[in-house]
């Protein structure tokens, strides 16, 4: 081995980790800014100082209610749910080595949605009940899809296709449930299904936060194994990754995050789908994508909610905005992925 090669290796590794550090730093800054803007802007404008006092628990006329009870939970939920969606989405995309294999496509979101629609329309459950239903169903669908695609080990392609089939079935179940709905329930269910931050409460926000605190570290502990899975199952296994164990841990953690976030906000379209590829674009292959994708997700939801609330004369739920913004990027991504022949 020559020293010049060693130097080159060290240099390129340092460059990669520095780039990663810079990217994460910038993303964190952007999320903080977007979060602050979400707190300040609205019917009434409040200065950062007033908001800071509200956060510290002081009583500020007007702001204490508007910021403390409405904007703070809403913006916090937006950031947390976005982070969960980004994290969960990129996990599936990395594990299945296909940016299109996001939870929205392979049935997990559909399962949570069908369950929520059922809980709202048929059972007439309250918010907590709806959440529990959505979470259980999301996990249930993940287990069913995983089991059905198991034949001498799980092949990514088979899992994706079976997920698409299950999603189709669940979507039609949702449609049926909605067709049985009374007008009021229908609107509530539809709003939930589009993904909305309206009526965000501290209770919901805390639930998502707890999920993130518990499941996030579990997922991050598998970050390096996930990273190795990018090289293909055989290569990863030859490099000492235990495939089934990694997959199961990662699926449980990711589905849990997705389900809790979905239960709180409804399936916000395309956030899980887009965060990973956008993060991959910015980070440029320098290390694990988990944290950058989570930050991108948080940023997407915060910005989309701002646009949905204030950019038009009608208030759109955040899911409509992410859907409309995400659709063209999705199609672009599809074209690019197929050209390149797969992999994130």
């Amino acid at each position: 081995m020559t020293t010049s090669t060693l130097d080159a290796v060290v240099r390129s590794r340092v460059r990669r980790s520095r780039r990663r550090g810079v990217v994460i730093g910038i993303l964190v800054a952007l999320v903080v800014i977007a979060y602050a803007v979400n707190l300040m802007v609205g019917e009434t404008f409040y200065t950062p100082y007033e908001i800071w006092r509200v956060i510290l628990g002081e009583t500020v006329p007007g702001a204490s209610f508007t910021v403390g009870e409405l904007r703070l939970p809403r913006a916090t939920l937006a950031a947390l749910a976005g982070f969960c969606f980004g994290l969960g989405g990129v996990t599936f995309q990395t594990m299945l080595r296909n940016p299109l294999a996001s939870p929205d496509v392979i049935g997990i979101t559909s399962g949570a949605s069908a369950a929520a629609a059922f809980a709202i329309v048929i059972l007439g459950l309250s918010e907590t009940g709806v959440s529990v239903f959505a979470i259980v169903a999301g996990l249930g669908v993940a287990i069913v899809v995983y089991t059905l695609s198991f034949r001498d080990g799980v092949a990514g392609t088979r899992l994706i296709l079976i997920g698409i089939g299950i999603a189709a079935m669940l979507d039609s179940a949702t449609a049926y449930v909605l067709s049985q709905a009374a007008q009021w329930d229908l609107q509530q269910a539809q709003r939930w299904l589009t993904g909305s931050l309206n009526g965000a409460t501290w209770d919901e926000t805390v639930q998502v936060l707890v999920a993130l605190v518990v499941l996030g570290p579990l997922l991050l502990s598998q970050a390096r194994n996930l990273f190795m899975l990018q090289l293909g199952d055989d290569t990863a296994a030859a490099l000492g990754v235990r495939l089934e164990r990694t997959r199961i841990l990662v699926i449980v953690a990711a589905v849990g995050l997705l389900a809790f976030a979905t239960a709180a906000t409804g399936p916000i379209a395309f956030v899980a789908f887009l965060s990973g590829p956008i993060a991959a674009r910015i980070v440029g292959g320098a290390g694990s994508l988990l944290v950058p994708a989570g930050l991108v997700g948080a940023l997407l939801v915060l910005v989309a909610d701002l646009i949905g609330q204030y950019a038009f004369d009608i208030r759109y739920p955040v899911g409509v905005i992410t859907g409309v913004l995400g659709a063209p990027y999705l199609v672009y991504l599809l074209i690019r992925t197929n050209r390149a022949g797969g992999s994130l």
């Binding site: 080159a8 990669r16 080595r97 090289l231 293909g232 055989d234 992999s343």
Partner: peptide, 27 residues
């Protein structure tokens, strides 16, 4: 060690990054 027949290189990965992933069992 095993080198499978058609290993998959993630899009955009650099040579030194890819080779570095061979260090996984030692980390």
């Amino acid at each position: 060690g095993l080198l499978p027949q058609s290993p998959i290189a993630p899009e955009g990965i650099t040579v030194s990054d890819l080779v570095g992933r061979g260090r996984n069992p030692h980390q």
